[in-house]
Design a protein around this nucleic acid. Sequence first.
DNA 1: ACAGACTGCGCC
DNA 2: AAAGGGCGCAGTCTGT
Length: 556
Amino acid sequence: MSVERVALAVDADGPGGALQRLDAAGAPLGGPQRLLDAAAAVRLVEDAPAAPRWVWRNARTYRRLLAAGVTVARCHDVELVEGLLVAADGRFGAPHGIAAAAARLAGREPAADPAPEEDPEADPDRPALFAAAPRDVDPDPLGTLVAVHAEQQRRLAAQDARFRLLATAESAGGIVAEEMRAAGLPWREDVHDRLLTTQLGPRPAGFARPARLVELNEEISIAFGREVNPDSPAEVIRAFGRAGHELESTRSWLIKRIDHPAVAPLLAYKELSRLHTANGWTWLRTWVKDGRFRPEYVVGGVVSGRWATRGGGALQIPRAVRGAVRADPGRRLVVADASQLEPRILAAMAGDAGLARAGGEDTDLYAALAEDLFDGDRARAKLALLSAMYGQTSGGAGVLLGTLRRRFPAAVQFVEDAARAGEEGRLVRSWLGRTSPAARPGDEIPAAARARGRFTRNFVVQATAAEWALVLLAELRSALRRAGNPAELVLFQHDEVLLHCPDEVAEDTAAAVRRAAATAGRRLFGDSPVRFPMDARVVDGYDEKEAGAVEEVLPA
DNA sequence: ACAGACTGCGCC
DNA sequence: AAAGGGCGCAGTCTGT
């Protein structure tokens, strides 16, 4: 029997570990093998003609390999797969760490997953004094890994091919996330500082507020005729109240409607204050080291399967500082984002022939729809589709939705079925089988049921878009490896990827992204006519827009 | 004094 | 009649 997989457990302390060769079902071939240098052993096995799929507990194993300069082609991430399997069984959010999986396997009730900080592998260099209490240390981590993996292979065999693709893609996501963190997003501290200084004034000493914020605060207070703290919503509401303007909240779109001299400086203050507190000098000092921003990505960290990040807010880099993301000398950035991804996903998964036709071109789907249905009014076409996917009905959205329903009944029916399932407390699944959380007590109360309906309505689209993007990432990574293209993935943001590469391969890299997008579409939807175009541009800075690019303010 | 909820806004 | 999905983060507010 041929070796298909190799289970790998690395020691918590030191470079050693153990591996176990497995067949496709996860059954051991031969005995476990002790390793003095796990990374060196992996490199040897990986360089053999048929590289196996590595089976590991989670991506921290890969972080160790990367630190030793070793990469691999494929893996099976047991903890990520366990999360998918647990959710598929209707127990979204149940513990899915390896200890919990092992406990279930032994017929015991699993304990809660350890918090990341408690993870004994989290920081091998942490002084023993602060190490987690040595409770529940597994005496045979490799044996546990092998047993849990075999059980997962059994459960995966009972699922369909789509779900197995999801498990593979999620695991690949774990690899990509670690590689992105290792590569880091190129970040020019001097450019960032200049952007901040231009907008906020010079960097203040200590904890003082920047000059521009202090000035604006004074203008606000003068306009109100008394000292007002613009950071306090309650004070702002009281101040406007005294001036005869009743406010329900201090959201900027409400303030914008008021005619009062404090409005302009207040709005300016809010915008700049946010820049200062969220992405100012403190952020820069905390998160950027040696010209790289290295956030920690949490694969599948969002219920819909989107990624989250821990620290640094990497998925919310504001436009105001994107100019600081610049390629190193001799290198370029390839910035690629999917065009109108979610409506295209809806068209493909609903099998709506009409909407698929509108999405069957590489051109702007909203514009095509507007031409066809909304007298060329792109904004209305977009609102109609977003309303269908989010459940919005206010602001004329209801009428637009009716128009959409008459022309694209299958697409609208699809999301409304998902909404009804949610309202009735049922589970919904994405195209590949990611499963929504179960309804909670109280969700049968009408208002909560409607909210859950909006959630499940959006879930089927957002989760499928997320898995399309995941498959794209996996395809792109393996295509680059096959081609020997040294481009590095450095940022992934829902429907957008950034790569950092030598100048001379930039155009090849952009082409690879477009091909990977098409491949991802085929992997998910076979011969669906829906196209998944990506706008991929080669730039020096993340803020550079291609001429004539369509501004997207709302989700694509 | 501290923790958690709430608010508001950035991103998709 | 009205009903807008998913996040992370910093600051304020509230409860203990």
